[in-house]
């Protein structure tokens, strides 16, 4: 039997897939919150992402950008353990330590559309739940589109 989308959160919780050491050892990926980056006047986007104590999950674990471009992410580690952040970016991925109770800002550049995974790449933080998604919405520039009539999409 399958659940509907609206029932999914409740089912994840009931089974114990949205927390640490319940049904599974870790937390099923992408079961955390969804958040949106803010478009600022200077043309950059901004977001805050924190690590929830003892939950090994990014909050939000799915960050939505309205379009591709430059993104400043302030990471906040509220956990009582040290983690880190490895985030894709054009040119080179960005990496930073996130010691217990620390805050730091990272700047990345991402193309849209599409989505990217970021993570804490130490130990098995990734398997336990510290993998998050950055979703970039929008379309490619008109100059990059095919010269053809509009086509149906799924």
């Amino acid at each position: 039997m399958t659940s509907t989308a609206s029932e999914r959160s409740a089912a994840l919780s009931e089974i114990g897939l949205d927390g640490q050491n319940q049904a599974t050892i870790g937390r099923l990926l992408a079961t955390g919150n969804i958040g949106h980056a803010e478009d600022r006047d200077d043309g950059r986007m901004h977001a805050r992402i924190r690590i929830v104590p003892d939950q090994l999950v990014w909050d939000p674990s799915v960050l939505v950008l309205p379009h591709g471009g430059h993104l400043d992410i302030e990471f906040v580690n509220d956990d009582q353990n040290t983690h880190c952040a490895l985030v894709p970016s054009n040119g080179d991925s960005k990496w930073m330590w996130l010691p217990n109770y620390s805050r730091g800002t990272m700047s990345v550049t991402l193309d849209g559309p599409g989505y990217y995974w970021f993570s804490s790449n130490i130990g098995n933080d990734e398997g336990r739940g510290l993998i998050g998604a950055i979703v970039v919405r929008g379309d490619v520039p008109e100059s990059a589109r095919l010269d053809r009539p509009q086509q149906p999409r799924p």
Binding site: H36, A37, A47, V76, N77, M96, P99, S102, R103
Partner: peptide, 19 residues
């Protein structure tokens, strides 16, 4: 915007800069 609030019971430190 992601609505992430600082905890008031924690004194945060600066993480080392991203590289």
């Amino acid at each position: 915007m992601t609505d992430i609030q600082d905890r008031t019971d924690i004194e945060y430190g600066e993480a080392p800069p991203a590289v």
